[in-house]
């Protein structure tokens, strides 16, 4: 039997750590233990591997159209004058926007490359900023402090920021597209307080950081750090950063939805 169980090994804590269910003190304690215990470190990696395998979108069954139709009919017959939220249509408009965004991104990359020497420092977000954004994302998950205001209701989350920030972040409901609003939080990035909006896609959390910016609206900037995908754009006087362990295509879909939902 390779390795041996140490007295301080607590497998249930390794699982809770992999599930993001530990508080600050326990997290620090366990991270220290993982550095010194190969057994528990391997256990932790196996937990993460299983979660990754189960995150396969094909294992998540979405409500079929027949169920939506039947529910709509039943609700109407019970006096509910309402429409069942339709499944997100495979809208040509969205595809168009996406291809436009991709084209714009391609054009942007060309321009960036051509003028790299003079524009790099000004146009590209600084490496430090990207690192800061990713760190805030990791910290929010690690410390189990995703939200200060847990709510899936945009009309609860948006007013919560009043009086806490000197700007009002746009809060959009994308639940119909499979990105569920989890809540909001105040975070600090580059020494300034920013709004963090948390969305969930299956078991993946997305931190959307928003703060006022004078930068011109432009195409999406897509990058990755430490295994997290990062997308940045400017719109309506706000700098927006989306960070997640979600795959790049779906995170980009998230960004596109936010930009077109305005």
């Amino acid at each position: 039997m390779p390795g041996s169980e140490k007295a301080e090994c607590r497998p249930e804590m390794v699982q809770a750590y992999a599930d993001g269910q530990l508080g600050v003190a326990e997290t620090l304690e366990l991270e220290h233990h993982l550095k010194t215990c190969a057994n528990c470190a391997a256990a932790y990696r196996n937990h993460r591997a299983l979660s990754a395998a189960l995150a396969d979108p094909a294992l998540y069954y979405k409500a079929p159209p027949a169920l939506r139709d039947r529910l709509g009919a039943a609700l109407t017959s019970r006096g509910a004058r309402t429409e069942v939220a339709p499944p997100p249509p495979p809208a040509p408009r969205r595809l168009l926007w996406r291809s436009l965004a991709l084209a714009a991104l391609a054009a942007f990359v060309v321009i960036m490359t051509a003028t790299l020497s003079i524009r790099l420092g000004r146009t590209a977000p600084s490496e430090l900023l990207v690192r800061d954004v990713v760190q805030s994302h990791v910290r929010s998950l690690l410390l189990n402090h995703l939200t200060d205001v847990p709510s899936s209701d945009q009309h609860t989350v948006k007013p919560w920021f009043n009086g806490k920030l000197d700007f009002s972040p746009p809060v959009k409901d994308l639940a119909a597209d499979g990105f569920v609003l989890v809540g909001g939080r105040i975070d600090v990035i580059e020494d300034r307080p920013v709004a963090a909006l948390i969305y969930r896609r299956r078991a993946h959390y997305i931190n959307l950081f928003v703060w006022p910016s004078a930068d011109q609206p432009g195409a999406l900037i897509v990058t990755a750090r430490r295994g997290f995908n990062v997308i940045h754009w400017n719109e309506m006087g706000m700098a927006c950063w989306a960070v997640s362990d979600l795959n790049r295509a779906e995170l980009q879909q998230f960004a596109d939805l936010l930009r077109t939902a305005s």
């Binding site: 998540y60 069954y61 979405k62 409500a63 079929p64 169920l67 939506r68 529910l71 609700l75 019970r78 006096g79 509910a80 004058r81 309402t82 429409e83 069942v84 939220a85 899936s152 209701d153 409901d173 639940a175 119909a176 499979g178 569920v180």
Partner: peptide, 21 residues
């Protein structure tokens, strides 16, 4: 069901139909 309840229900609960299914 009152129209108001139905409206709130469709805003608050229906987005979670995928999870329910």
């Amino acid at each position: 069901t009152s129209p108001d309840t139905a409206r709130r229900f469709s805003q608050v609960v229906l987005p979670h139909l995928d999870a329910a299914y």
